[in-house]
Amino acid sequence: MEQSPLFQDIDRYLINLWLSSCTEHSFEAGQVVIEAGTRTNEIFLLLSGELRVHVEADGAESLRTLEPGEIAGEVSILTGSTTSAWVTATQPSRALGISREELTQWVQQSHQFSLNLLQIANHRLHSSNLHARHQHREKRKLQAIAMTDGLTGLLNRHWLSLNAQRFQGVSVLALDLDHFKSINDRFGHGAGDQVLQAVAEQLRQGTRPHDAVMRLGGEEFVIVVDMSRGDGDPLQLAERLRVAIEELHIPLCGDEGADQLRVTISIGVATQARQESWEQLLERADQALYSAKNKGRNQVQLA
Rank of each mutant, 00 (worst) to 15 (best):
F27Q: 06
F27D: 04
E28L: 14
A29Q: 04
A29K: 05
A29P: 01
Q31N: 02
Q31T: 04
V32M: 14
V32N: 14
V32I: 15
V33C: 01
I34Q: 03
I34K: 04
E35C: 07
A36N: 08
A36E: 05
G37V: 12
T38Y: 08
T38R: 12
R39D: 02
T40W: 06
T40K: 00
I43M: 14
I43T: 07
I43Y: 00
F44H: 13
F44S: 03
L45K: 11
L45P: 05
L45A: 03
L46E: 00
L46Y: 06
L46R: 01
L47C: 09
S48W: 09
G49I: 05
E50C: 14
E50K: 09
E50T: 09
L51Y: 07
L51D: 06
L51M: 13
L51Q: 03
R52V: 13
R52Q: 15
R52G: 10
R52E: 14
R52S: 14
R52D: 09
H54D: 01
H54Y: 08
V55H: 00
V55P: 00
V55F: 10
E56M: 10
A57D: 14
A57R: 15
D58L: 15
D58F: 15
D58W: 09
D58G: 08
G59I: 11
G59V: 13
A60F: 11
A60S: 12
E61P: 00
E61A: 05
S62H: 08
L63P: 06
L63W: 08
L63T: 08
R64F: 07
R64T: 08
R64I: 03
R64Y: 02
T65S: 13
T65N: 12
T65Q: 12
T65A: 12
L66F: 12
L66I: 04
E67S: 11
P68R: 08
P68D: 06
G69A: 07
G69R: 03
G69L: 09
E70N: 04
E70D: 03
I71M: 06
I71L: 11
I71Y: 10
A72V: 13
A72M: 02
G73Y: 04
E74M: 05
E74L: 04
V75A: 10
V75R: 02
V75L: 14
V75F: 11
S76E: 11
I77K: 02
I77L: 15
I77P: 01
L78M: 13
T79I: 03
T79K: 08
G80Q: 03
G80P: 01
G80L: 11
S81I: 11
T82Y: 09
T83H: 05
T83C: 10
T83F: 02
S84P: 00
S84G: 01
A85C: 03
A85H: 12
W86I: 09
T88E: 14
A89C: 12
A89F: 15
T90Y: 05
T90P: 13
Q91P: 00
P92N: 05
P92T: 05
P92K: 08
